[in-house]
Computed example of a mutant assay.
Amino acid sequence: MSEIVDQISTVFAEKGHRHYGENVSELEHALQTAAFARQFGESDAVVLACLLHDYGHLLHNLGETVANDGIDAQHEELGAELLQENFPPEIVEPVRLHVAAKRYLCGKDPKYLEGLSPSSQLSLQLQGGPMTADELREFESHPHFEAAVRVRRYDDMGKVPGMKTPGLDAYRELIAEFAVL
């Protein structure tokens, strides 16, 4: 279990400085998203899913301007595929579904779409745009859809330049607690 903790820490240390159109680095974004989830009393599983939701961005080598280049890196699938080797579905599925949750919220509430950052609006178009009525119903039937929506809401919040948060080391025990292999 310590191997996955060390692997995650190493990936964030080596690539967490990257930016993907927001005014915070990937590491800052992950830490803020997890901090907001913890602040609002979420379960440890949701907090960890928040920390790891964009892990896939750190795993591809498509560059920091991937969305501007018109490419959907499918970071949610990339991250979930790697994480599923070491974590249970309560962590992996909200990571896998957080992009679908953005599409879901845009399909349910046009005001949500208006509130997205420019970077999120751009990536939304590459990811399929707002869900249709049929897609909304199908998404709502997924057993992890509510957790994915909560992760998405904290994802939207975690874009505050200069925000102070606990560092990645504050989550080592939580990562180890949920690691299953």
Rank of each mutant, 00 (worst) to 15 (best):
E135M: 13
F36N: 00
L105K: 05
E3C: 05
D109C: 10
H29E: 05
H98Q: 09
S119Y: 14
G158Q: 04
Q39R: 10
V24E: 07
L105S: 01
S123H: 01
L62F: 00
L168P: 07
S2R: 14
Q39Y: 13
Y104K: 12
T132G: 12
G16K: 12
H17F: 15
F145K: 05
S43R: 14
E114A: 15
G167H: 08
E81I: 07
G115M: 09
E76S: 09
Q32W: 05
N68H: 10
M157C: 10
K108G: 08
F87I: 11
L27H: 07
E22S: 11
L97Q: 03
F36P: 03
S123W: 01
Y112W: 11
P110E: 15
Q74R: 15
S117G: 07
R152E: 00
G41I: 10
A80F: 10
D69L: 10
Y112L: 04
K15A: 11
L124G: 02
A13Q: 14
F178C: 03
F178W: 07
A30P: 04
L52H: 00
V160N: 00
K108T: 09
R172G: 01
R172I: 02
R18W: 09
S141I: 10
L51K: 07
F178A: 02
H75R: 05
A176Q: 13
